[in-house]
Design a protein around this nucleic acid. Sequence first.
DNA 1: GCCAACGTTGGC
DNA 2: GCCAACGTTGGC
Length: 620
Amino acid sequence: MAEDWQDCPALGPGWKRREAFRKSGASCGRSDIYYQSPTGEKIRSKVELTRYLGPACDLTLFNFRQGILCYPVPKTHPLPAPNKKKKKPSKPAKAKKRQVGPQKSEVRKETPRKGRKAGAGAAAGSGAAAGAAPASLPALGCCENCGIRLSRDCIKRQRLKALCKDCRAQRIAFNREQRMFRRVGCGECTACLVKEDCGACSICRLQLPHDVASELFCKCERRRCLRIVEKSRGCGVCRGCQTQEDCGRCRVCLRPARPGLKRQWRCLQRRCFWDKRDRRKSGSKVAARRHSRAQPLPPRPASQHPEPTELHISDLAPTSPAEFIYYCVDEDELQPYTNHHRQNRKCGACAACLRRMDCGHCDFCCDKPKFGGSNQKRQKCRWRQCLQFAMKRLLPSTGPGSEEGAGLPPCALRKRPGSPRRRLRLSSPSKAPLAVLTTPPGPARASAKQQAGRGFVLPPPDTDFVFLQEGAASPVQVPGPAAASSEAPLQEAQSWGVAMPQVKQEKTDAPEEWTSGTGFPTSALQPGYPSKALDSDLPPVKQEPPGPAEDREENREDYVSESAPEEEAGGVGTPVITEIFSLGGTRLRDAAAWLPRLHKLLAVNENEYFTELQLKEEIL
DNA sequence: GCCAACGTTGGC
DNA sequence: GCCAACGTTGGC
């Protein structure tokens, strides 16, 4: 991560080069060369460089690894080349073209997230949106904190791009430090020095083994590090926190009071710089602007932590035993799971793994350079993401004694600290029929993750399952459990994977595609083809002809080779598998309520299509 | 908690 | 050398 960029004059002013040594893995010690264009574009290979500079630019003399021009031994006339490597001429046109990618993604970002972009580059256009406090805006292209002019690199970066390099580093360091405090504490504050649990807080009441709770993150509430900056209270030392009076000029102060209601928002000038929430709550960068230019970063709050009486329970307290275990897992214990090799994400046998062609339509494909994307997401085509891998992590364990837990490293049953994706796992991923859980579009998404107590999540009652059973030619969809028995055998769930497609918000199905009342998409029960409304404009997905091995699997994989393209083309857009990882967890108890009935149904009617009526009769 | 972004690594 | 994509980080 150490970005020791060095100028690369061979490519022209503004170009930088970096050599990154691989620190681990089979190729440890090997180095990779990266370039950065004057506009901040990252170039990873000569091919990319060529693409970036355009065909008019001849790179044959350019040694990508060395970052220098290598002229052929001049036999006759030694002058030719110096200018040849002047990439600059062709760059603008191509660079302009390359800008399309980022711009596109930024547009997309702007909509749902109020566009951080608006602050710098697009500020002119969105200034009206910011409207209320234009006077406090920092100059475009200036660090929001110290006000120095930002480099192009800083401007380009979407994260923290409104901060200069130093301020950004400070902020990142602060965030990192806070995480450390949350996990292990500073070891110096009075809370960290307390050796005895209080015995009365919510954690102590859980009566966890002392040796587990003592050294880890989920400590007694009274022993939690005091250097953690609580979001709602601020650091107490920055200018915002120390300002006692409202400015009377910011948009919060100027907001007309509602009769009978106390103003809820704090004056922008009084908000803590370190509170990241304000950046989003106040829309775009208004909150960050309060610390703009004239206001350097406040001293690190870590050295001047809040009063010892301030506990920060809300940030830390696990809300359930399950969460508690998550927080208590020792990092080392997680190694076997967290360090699994990259290839472990492929079972190599499921339809997704056997699929060789990218769909070209999903968001990950669109991100790929070969499809004209900007290579920001860098993820495998959604339709090629391993189904087994997804299922392994889908269903939660029910405890050490359960079958789900058997045969797994204990860590596999726990959430991973530090990982944004909670993956749940069951022990027997083999031979699992595949199931797809679909949810009605639009507002249903918000409710798709109903809280099912103790932090687990289950689909809403009107959620539909589309079961893609191996051996069956078409998916089967059933309505949600009306009065599911929560005591159904958990083992049943092992036979099924459940996924939730289209969780992402980029694409939303038209509501009319769904039959109201039944909760079924009108097209979903068409024998053989379950997809929702098709977009005929989209080209069919290229499918590689099956190899010999695939022939054997043909029947078993039909459901993907047929249904997947349909779904891709059908505007369902995002297939199901990767979305599993985004689920906060599906409560096995609830999943199990579905599965026995479906399992039975499909066992009896294997290889048959199901009509909506059949399913209703059979299941309801 | 979720996810976009991107550094990094595996494999062809 | 190049590309695919894994895994982590930072932001919302």
